[in-house]
């Protein structure tokens, strides 16, 4: 009989989520498109959340999913949409030998940290069963509002400063003076007087028996199409429907109805 190795649920979780987290981190570095990098970062963060769960940090598990994966990474994706998601970066080295040196530094740092911090671990893990006896969230709350209450108060200042700072940085100042409503109205009427521009709003799109979509142009009293009733963008895309044909359909339908009525009258 093959001896079954004694494994705990935490170990199984670690050996599934750990390699996936490393894969996500590698994807973050290696994908040339920023969006793919962001999505592999999401994978890493979710795996880390699972690992927090296996380390009996249930509150951090939830916070990791909500704050990191939900809020921070989505913020990254929004900014990527603003600054061009499809841009791939060039692979040309600006500093010669930078890539090799970077990899060397990373490997060296890994070795240094592994031996440095790994050597600091002494004895078996105590485990959080005692600390979590009254519940993980309750234990953290007791620390947060007890021992660390001053730090907690300071974070509120940090968050406010960060929010105001981001607003200031992203704000675009107005270059000219904002025109008043009176000036706008006077300009509209002077345009009408000098250039003959219509001062009112543009006509609606056409309303037919079959459609009243914005692609259907309205008809003028003489049966011609009103150019102003449809958007110029739609005209350029060729999305405009044939208005006289629609009107003709309506006309034939009316004729048929009237013919039936005439028969009934007879």
């Amino acid at each position: 009989m093959i001896p079954v190795p004694l494994v705990t649920a935490a170990e199984v979780t670690f050996w599934i989520a750990g390699p996936l987290a490393v894969l996500g981190a590698l994807g973050l570095i290696l994908f040339r498109r920023a969006v793919y990098s962001a999505l592999s970062m999401v994978l890493t963060m979710i795996c880390l959340a699972v690992l927090y769960g296996s380390l009996q940090a249930t509150f951090l598990f939830a916070v990791q999913v909500i704050v990191y994966t939900g809020a921070i990474m989505m913020l990254f994706l929004f900014v990527m949409m603003m600054v061009g998601a499809n841009s791939t970066e060039s692979v040309v080295e600006t500093i010669k030998g930078q890539r090799v040196l970077s990899i060397l530094v990373a490997v060296g740092l890994f070795a240094l940290l592994m031996f440095g911090i790994g050597g600091a671990i002494q004895g078996a893990a105590v485990g959080l069963n005692k600390a979590n006896a009254g519940g993980n969230v309750q234990g953290l709350a007791a620390l947060l509002f007890g021992k660390y209450v001053f730090v907690f108060e300071l974070t509120s200042a940090l968050l406010i400063v960060a929010a105001v700072g981001a607003m200031t940085l992203a704000h675009i100042g107005r270059v000219g003076r904002k025109p008043t409503q009176r000036e706008l109205a006077e300009k509209r009427l002077s345009d009408y007087a000098t250039k003959g521009d219509h001062p009112g709003s543009l006509p609606n799109s056409g309303v037919y028996a079959h459609t009243n979509a914005i692609t259907a142009p309205a008809l003028l009293p003489d049966g011609t199409i009103s150019e102003a009733s449809v958007s110029q963008t739609l005209v350029e895309r060729g999305a405009i429907v044939d208005a006289p044909a629609l009107a003709a359909q309506t006309a034939t339908a009316f004729k048929a109805i009237e013919a039936v009525r005439d028969e009934e009258d007879e």
Binding site: A10, F14, G18, V22, S87, S102, V105, A106, M114
Partner: peptide
């Protein structure tokens, strides 16, 4: 469960993050 494994994973992820900072040019990445 051996806590050391988690520490090694954390150092590996940290080193990968360092590599990303040094290698990539896109400010977002």
């Amino acid at each position: 469960m051996n806590v050391e494994n988690y520490i090694y994973l954390a150092t590996l992820l940290f080193a990968l993050g360092t590599a990303g900072v040094l290698l990539r040019r896109n400010a977002l990445v």
